[in-house]
Computed example of a mutant assay.
Amino acid sequence: MDDERLIPINAEIQIPLAELSFRFSTSSGPGGQHVNKSATRVTLLFDVANSPSLPDGVRERLLKRLANRIDKEGMLQLHVQSSRSQHRNRDTAVSLFQQLLTDALKKKKKRRKTKPSKAAVEKRLSEKKKRGDRKRDRSRKW
């Protein structure tokens, strides 16, 4: 396979363009008669659950992180209709797919517990006290 037919996700993973399938439909929105007769909306389909390009650990992580975008059969669907050109929408869908998978495979930083400083706590409480006093003063009779 040549490099033009592969979509690089990260250093280890590349997905062949042949694993992606595309559906085209009429787009919504402004555009006059052009919208009614041109199938410019692109739906990119990728079978995450059965892709031979994904190692098992990566597949599990993608299924977990992209659960809201994947249907019951394990198909990832991306819809793009930002342009009036089918070709441009297709390219946008592929780059969006690449970015989505890259972001989903990044390891999240572990959160380290922190504690506010004593000065910060005192400042917050004094500001809170001032606000309360100000509100109490407003409600008193003249």
Rank of each mutant, 00 (worst) to 15 (best):
K128Q: 11
T102G: 10
S95H: 09
R136A: 15
I70E: 09
S83W: 04
K106W: 00
H87C: 03
Q81F: 01
D91H: 07
E122M: 13
Q77F: 02
M75H: 11
L66V: 05
S95N: 08
K130Q: 15
L101M: 14
R136K: 14
F97Q: 02
G74M: 09
P116G: 07
L105W: 01
K129Y: 05
K72N: 07
G132Y: 01
R131W: 11
E73D: 13
S82M: 06
K109G: 11
Q77M: 14
Q81V: 00
L100C: 14
K107D: 08
S126T: 07
A104E: 06
F97M: 00
S126R: 07
K129S: 11
E127W: 07
L125T: 03
L76N: 01
R131L: 15
T114F: 03
T92W: 01
L105K: 00
D103Y: 04
I70T: 03
K106E: 06
A120T: 05
S95F: 08
K109T: 12
G74H: 05
R111T: 02
R65N: 08
A119E: 15
S126F: 00
A119I: 07
K107P: 07
D133N: 10
L96R: 01
R136W: 14
R90E: 02
A119L: 14
L105H: 04
M75T: 09
R124V: 09
G132Q: 15
G132P: 00
L100S: 04
K115D: 02
K109W: 02
A93D: 03
H79F: 13
K123V: 03
D91V: 06
A119T: 11
L96K: 03
H87T: 11
A104D: 10
K130H: 15
T92F: 03
L100N: 05
Q99E: 15
K107I: 07
A67W: 06
